[in-house]
Design a protein around this nucleic acid. Structure first.
Lengths: 218, 218, 218, 218
DNA sequence: TATGAATGAGAATTCATTCAT
DNA sequence: TATGAATGAATTCTCATTCAT
């Protein structure tokens, strides 16, 4: 008779166990999915990484696929949350564009799992995302902010006219995404270190030049 | 009237079974890996798709991983082969850039498996590519050609100075890659069809504007 | 009246399933390895013989090789356990030698699987045993006891001097082992039944004569 | 058109290819069966080791089992052949016994594959040997020779009476077999090097003492 | 809320053997 | 006599998932 479930642990530590377990599971799953993709991820490893019983994962998250969706949703929530704090509307248009580029770049660098997750979800043709009402409703407020910045820049005679904010947003994201997401492949192919401090600064600089070189008219 | 076992197929249809079988396996594997990633791909399905005995796959390609590498190498050979035929050196610089953007864009559209493969390989941190001496030696001659184009453009007073051809190459690829590779996710998030004929033309146009808007100085 | 699934077995029959399952697996594996060697043993057959799900074997014992080691360790524990109860120190030296010969002989007859296991392990050059800290630490206390018996016999003027207990132990074991382990081959070669009651008595007698004829000096 | 089968190789090298191939296969198979047992042996590896096409093995030896029997038969032929040259009848009885012990000991040391083969065949309960008319008819002439030696020794007043030559033969073989065949296991268990030059001399000496100590009466 | 035991369906890989030439 | 291509049937091992408590 080792464990006595009848003796409850102190009140202040217990109540949060459920939330804590769920968070641990999501954290572990994020790493696992990012490391191995959906097909390569192992529920066993997630349980081990989260230090919970495997059965518990099923208790909270129905299945592997649902768990993946939960992970994906949380990842989107997280980036959207940070995006909202950029306050692009409060700075001049050129600075706003710089900030957006830098934010995207840095977020991807600090959250490589996010890139992995995106890639995995795309391999599966957004199958999970499509099921999510959450993510769809959380579509980037950035597009609107970006539209406003472009408009402001044009009115100020700084930016060219007719720029589609969605296209630009995708371009900005793509410039960072391809470089960072494929850096292992690219480094190998070009036989050049792309992730050193200098290389990273050069890339950021190049992206700013590219985007602003396009946008700014004189 | 598929195959009638009693009627042996004419000699010219099956000149050398070995080569044919290997090609069939590679074709099938390409599709399977592109559809499901490395972890999700099934050797059984590859055998079925190639219409060969599963054992034969192991006869020619040691293991799943080696098969994946073989597929990857062939995919790179293929795109490099087509790139070589662009003859960018023989047209004026602006046209050369346009051609490169259009080629990349169209190649990705026509070969979505290539994008998948890239994504999968990156998920695995270029583990397979690193093992390949083949791919490393086949690094794009495009970088040299591109350098020459940029140089020529600059000397003609058309292009800005100091553009790194590798950065530009990565940017051009990234602009197409992110849009096309993540189109399922992006379509869902932005609730907008990105793959219709009109949308595709707009994207191509945007990419040209962006890159040339940056490069061309007057 | 084997098992009636509708009537749940009483609690005391199945006190802890885990222990029971592991024991069942080890029992089944012992027979399978003894019957077919390591290479010829089939995990499927072990599962069937143990009446457990094949997966469970991997749940408790990592792999076929680890299972083999576990079987081997248990077999050694078993024979060592019985050896300890021979109390050779409490009988006169000649009787002690007779007991040791008889014990070895009978143990091998009653546990032919032990002979098989030994043979198999040797085919593999003690690969598994070497990995085991357990077996190495359990080296027969018999060697010490045997040394004491030889010493006692010598002091009583019964036994010759200078007998190495390890050599003698190996000889006693070898006399039984070769006869019993190779009886199928030997029976065939000599065209003579070696396992009939009479033949067995003759062998035991021969071994006693041989060993005591060597040891006893008058 | 690389190979031209129509151009035959020079006459003096060709004719013996068939015998040569068979010998190569048997040699390779002997090593493979000795190294891995019957169940663990791989036809692929045998082909590779013999440097012949796998198909050729089946051409000459029907199946894996038949090949094993062929290997076994050749091994017995070999040891029997050497035994015949011992000429035990031409030396005095004590020397004859010494020669037999030494021969057995050295043959096993020089032909560890023979020990492996024996062990494997026994694991399979002499299944193959029983099928062989060859080996059965080749039962050791040594038994007769040994009987004659024992008789001669007894008549000379040297040896004890009533020694069964088969029992003695088995004992002599067993004393070497167990030590040498199980040396990996025994070395591990007793934590003592049993195969060093000194240890080997000691064993040979012990066996002579044991057998002659038993046989010789004064 | 939590968990150790258990499983069916499949996964990659292996193997002895045969086909066609 | 020799061989490269091909295969069906296993074989070890894996995996997401469920049971029983």
């Amino acid at each position: 008779m080792p464990r006595t479930p009848s003796t409850p642990r102190p009140a202040e530590t217990r109540p949060r166990d459920a939330d804590r377990s769920q968070k641990d599971i999501l954290d572990a799953a994020l790493r696992e999915f990012a490391d191995h993709g959906l097909g390569g991820a192992r529920m066993d490893r997630i349980a081990e990484r989260a230090d919970v019983n495997k059965r518990l994962i099923y208790y909270y998250f129905e299945s592997k696929e649902s768990l993946f969706l939960a992970v994906l949703e949380r990842a989107y929530e997280s980036i959207r949350g940070e995006e909202r704090q950029l306050s692009l509307s409060q700075v001049d248009p050129i600075e706003a564009i710089r900030r957006l580029i830098a934010f995207t770049w840095n977020y991807y660098i600090e959250h490589p799992e996010f890139l992995s997750l995106l890639g995995t979800e795309n391999l599966h043709r957004a199958r999970h995302l499509r099921r999510s009402t959450k993510v769809r409703s959380m579509h980037s407020p950035l597009v609107h902010t970006l539209a406003e910045v472009l408009e402001r820049g044009h009115k100020a005679g700084l930016f060219r006219a007719g720029v589609d904010p969605v296209q630009l947003y995708i371009s900005i994201a793509g410039l960072s995404y391809f470089y960072l997401g494929n850096c292992h492949t690219l480094s190998t192919i070009f036989d050049r270190d792309l992730m050193g401090a200098k290389a990273r600064l050069e890339r950021l600089s190049h992206m700013n030049d590219l985007v602003l070189g396009y946008l700014v008219r004189d």
